[in-house]
Amino acid sequence: MSLLDFARGPALEWAAVVFMVGMLWRIGGLTLMLRNKVLSKDRTPEPWKGGLRTMFTRFSPAPVFRRKVAFQYIAGWVWHLGFVLVVFFFQLHIQFFKGIVGFGWPALPNGMIVAMGAVSLAVLITLLIRRMLNPVLRMISSFDDYASTVITALPFATGLMAFAHIGLAYETMLALHFLSVALLLVWFPFSKLFHVFTVLPSRYALGVKFWRKGVKV
């Protein structure tokens, strides 16, 4: 079995299994935890409206904070968007998914995908350097924070290198790309990357909390 066969075969398959089991375990664990009940009368009825509101309003900072946190919001937006578009709208990725789900969908032009991948990678590297240099981020960061950024950046780097035939032989780069994806899948459920599944419920909870008190945020 070649490295490429191993990477796109057992490595990816087992990584997918670990990802699924890990995600189900963690989501299930959170869902099964008890919930405290609120007894006080709400100042505003239908608090779910506040929850939904905050889920969406928190995609951009409130005007009063914009000057101070614009960079991290925009940087976050750029690389998350780049990640989704590159993963799901690159022609070769769509073919890969078609092999799994049995159907495909329109792809974005390769040039656009490469540009978005490169920008996303640049943003992730910038965020990593910023985390190492910024005193606040350095103080609050753990191994998880650094490792998650690196592990998220690796598929971008290996994918771009494979596409552009940079570095090692194409097949080796492709194998490394698959392995980096496998690493991301294994890392995902056990790290802060799991926030993908908690961020919206978290915003919802805060929105409900404030709405109950008559505050729309």
Binding site: L30, M33, L34, F65, Q72, L137, H195, T198, V199, S202
Partner: peptide
Amino acid sequence: IDAEMATQLDACVKCGACAQA
């Protein structure tokens, strides 16, 4: 700690934005 608080604790990405408020 209930499900809501646990979800929020698991949602932090250590972006440091809170320091700016």
